[in-house]
């Protein structure tokens, strides 16, 4: 999907050979990127009984689905914002530690564990008689409902997405030339100004790709909405799952998927690298 900038070194290679090397790549794109999208658009043009119709698109603009779209975007935004809030300082501190690769590995490690397994663990941790509530009780706050709230939903999602946010930011910070920071200090900039005028602008690309890597999957989350939010949070992903598995209204499911693809494309364009011209 992010193949827009794929350019091949065209100098010393004969054009024929070059085209030959392109074949597997093009085939892959055709089979696994273009074909599924075309199939989804095609499926979205049929109703439950298999008649050709545009009614699905009309149905999408009813209050139920509009509200769902709005809440999907809202939660995806919150998840991305909190992930960024946690990840940027974490990545910054990582670059300053002695054994960065080890620390980085430890942060990435949880993403090797199956997503469903981690989510189930949180049901136990956040339950009425779980570890989190036991702590709250011993410090005198008393038991709270944690599971099936907005808080638990965003907390677990942020926990799951953090590695995807830290990695690009960490790489951007690593590439940053430390002498630029020294120069800013020498010229009398306060730490805050240094961050605002030097560090942040130079790592903005890492932040952008981190936001893409979090916002786009967060938009179509579905399993966590049921397990952690107890279906109190309904996103477009939940609706797609329902339409494909329960109602078998593939047309409507595909229509929602088309809108998700459009939304993702817009986000990619908005956050895309526009720095190319400057280089």
């Amino acid at each position: 999907m992010r193949a827009a900038e794929a350019t091949f070194p065209s100098q010393n290679v004969a054009p024929r050979t070059r085209n030959f090397y392109l074949v597997p790549y093009l085939l892959w794109m055709l089979l696994f990127v273009a074909a599924p999208i075309i199939l989804i658009v095609y499926d979205s043009l049929f109703d439950v009984d298999g008649n050709f119709t545009f009614a699905n698109y009309g149905h999408f603009f009813t209050p139920v689905y509009m509200k769902m779209t709005f809440s999907s975007f809202w939660y995806a935004f919150l998840i991305t914002a909190f992930s960024l809030l946690v990840s940027y300082p974490a990545a910054y501190l990582l670059t300053r530690t002695k054994h960065k690769q080890l620390w980085l590995l430890l942060i990435i490690l949880p993403s090797w564990i199956n997503l469903l397994l981690k989510t189930y663990a949180f049901i136990g941790l956040f339950g009425t008689y779980g570890a989190a509530n036991a702590i709250l009780e011993t410090i005198g706050i008393g038991r709270q409902q944690i599971l099936f709230t907005d808080f638990s939903f965003i907390f677990v999602s942020v926990y799951i997405f953090i590695p995807f946010m830290i990695l690009p930011i960490f790489n951007a910070l690593e590439e940053l030339n430390p002498s630029l920071i020294d120069a800013a200090r020498d010229l009398g900039a306060s730490p805050w100004t240094t961050f605002r005028r030097v560090i942040f602008p130079l790592t903005i690309n890492g932040v952008k790709s981190g936001c893409q890597a979090v916002f786009i999957p967060a938009l179509s989350l579905f399993m966590i909405t049921r397990l952690i939010a107890g279906n109190r949070v309904i996103t477009l992903g939940t609706a797609i799952e329902q339409h494909f598995l329960v109602t078998q209204d593939w047309g409507m499911g595909a229509t929602i998927a088309v809108f998700l693809i459009i939304a993702m494309a817009i986000i990619m364009i908005l956050t895309g690298n526009r720095a190319r011209g400057r280089r």
Binding site: V48, V64, M68, S71, R232, I234, H243, T247, D249
Partner: peptide, 19 residues
């Protein structure tokens, strides 16, 4: 029938979305 089942599901979705 599929149509009615889809309608039941839409109603159920609406119910789920009440805050």
């Amino acid at each position: 029938g599929k149509k009615m089942l889809a309608h039941y599901n839409d109603l159920f979705l609406e119910f789920k979305m009440h805050r």
